[in-house]
C-alpha cells in the first residue's frame, strides 16, 4: 500500500538516515538536533499513523496506554538530547544506527499511537513540559561556557541555544493563540455532573 504518508515517511528516512546525507546533517550541531532528529521522529510518526488503530476513547485503558506511549517517546528523545550521546552518534556509526532506529521506532511510532489517545489535559501537560524543556536546553546551550559536545564548536552551541528559546517561544504561541482566541463557540448548556446549577 503506497499512500501519500508512507511516501513522505520513506523520503524523510532517505534524506535523514542514509549516509552520506546522514553525516552531512550530523556535521553541524544545529542540523543534527533541530533537523535530523525531528525528521526521524516525524518519519516514525507518519509510519505509525499508517499502522496504529484508531483510538477507542471510551476505554480508560486506551488513555493510560497513550500516556505510556508518549512517555516512551519523551524518554527516547531526551536520551538523544544528552550531549555525550550526540557526540557518540557522531563518533560511532553503530551508535548512530541505534540512534536512527530508536528515534523512528521508540519515539515517532509510539507518538503516533499515543497522541490521539491523550486527553486534552495530558496533551496540555506534554505541551507545557516541552516548552519548559526547550527553555532549559536553550539556557543550557546559550550560557554554558565550555563545549558541551566535543564534535561541535562552541559558537554553534550559542546558535542552538537561541534556536531552542525560539522553539520554546513558538510552542508557547502555537499553544496560546488557539487557547486564548479559538473560534469555537463553546457548548451552550452548562452541564456538569459534579455540581449542577440549581434553577
Amino acid at each position: 500500500m503506497l499512500s501519500y504518508r508512507s511516501l513522505v515517511a520513506a523520503g524523510l528516512l532517505l534524506i535523514a538516515a542514509v549516509p552520506p546525507l546522514a553525516w552531512w546533517w550530523e556535521a553541524s550541531l544545529v542540523r543534527h538536533m533541530l533537523m535530523q532528529i525531528p525528521m526521524l521522529v516525524l518519519a516514525g510518526f507518519l509510519l505509525g499513523t499508517l499502522v496504529a488503530p484508531s483510538p477507542d476513547l471510551g476505554v480508560r485503558e486506551e488513555r493510560a496506554g497513550g500516556i505510556a506511549a508518549v512517555l516512551l517517546a519523551t524518554f527516547c528523545v531526551t536520551f538523544w538530547m544528552i550531549p555525550r550521546w550526540l557526540d557518540a552518534a557522531v563518533a560511532s556509526h553503530r551508535v548512530d544506527a541505534i540512534k536512527i532506529m530508536t528515534l523512528v521506532l521508540l519515539a515517532g511510532l509510539p507518538l503516533a499511537w499515543g497522541w490521539p489517545r491523550l486527553g486534552p489535559v495530558a496533551r496540555g501537560f506534554v505541551w507545557v513540559q516541552a516548552i519548559s524543556m526547550a527553555i532549559v536546553l536553550g539556557l543550557l546551550y546559550l550560557t554554558f561556557p565550555n563545549r558541551l559536545c566535543n564534535s561541535y564548536l562552541v559558537n554553534e552551541q550559542a546558535i542552538l541555544g537561541i534556536a531552542m528559546l525560539g522553539i520554546a517561544g513558538f510552542l508557547g504561541l502555537a499553544g496560546a493563540v488557539p487557547v486564548l482566541f479559538g473560534a469555537n463557540n463553546g457548548s451552550p448548556a452548562p452541564r456538569h455532573p459534579g455540581a449542577r446549577v440549581d434553577p
Binding site: 524518554f75 531526551t78 544528552i82 550531549p83 557526540d87 557518540a88 563518533a91 563545549r147 558541551l148
Partner: peptide, 14 residues
C-alpha cells in the same frame, strides 16, 4: 537515562 549519564552525573562526552 541513569545508565546513559552515569547516574545523572555525566552529560558530556568530555
Amino acid at each position: 537515562l541513569w545508565w546513559g549519564s552515569d547516574g545523572f552525573t555525566t552529560f558530556t562526552a568530555e
